[in-house]
């Protein structure tokens, strides 16, 4: 499941379960490409929760989470961030990071 959310929706996420959150920008080529990577992953993992957050429109949240640039992927498990991927990553790298959550 791949869905765009805002800060308000982020606050309600259940991050005790394995979850992926991606910060992206509309003005970023690598972010657009990473979007296609996540869509590809969604095909094989339709139930895995993946959320996209607009870096520019959610300034307070990205500051709080220490997200310095885009694209940035945060991976959560057990209520805490367990891994962070910065920059454009290939599908196998993202898949491996997701698998490590289980």
């Amino acid at each position: 499941m791949l869905k765009e959310i805002t800060q308000t929706e982020y606050e309600t996420l259940d991050i005790t379960a394995p979850t992926l959150v991606e910060f992206y920008s509309k003005t970023c080529g690598p972010c657009k490409m990473l979007g296609f990577v996540l869509k590809e992953i969604e095909k094989s993992l339709p139930d895995f929760p993946m959320y996209q957050i607009d870096f520019d429109a959610n300034a307070e949240l990205k500051e709080r989470l220490g997200v310095k640039g885009f694209p940035t992927i945060l991976l959560y498990k057990g209520g805490a961030e367990v891994e962070r991927l910065e920059g454009l990553k290939q599908k196998p790298v993202v898949q491996k990071a997701i698998e490590s959550l289980f």
């Binding site: 920008s25 509309k26 003005t27 970023c28 080529g29 690598p30 657009k32 490409m33 454009l88």
Partner: peptide
């Protein structure tokens, strides 16, 4: 332009794809 998504494809018997950074 900065932020455009660009990819180069070499398409033959196999396809080779390359991401082109614009940022």
């Amino acid at each position: 332009e900065k932020g455009q998504m660009v990819m180069l494809l070499l398409e033959g018997k196999t396809t080779h794809a390359y991401f082109v950074p614009t940022t």
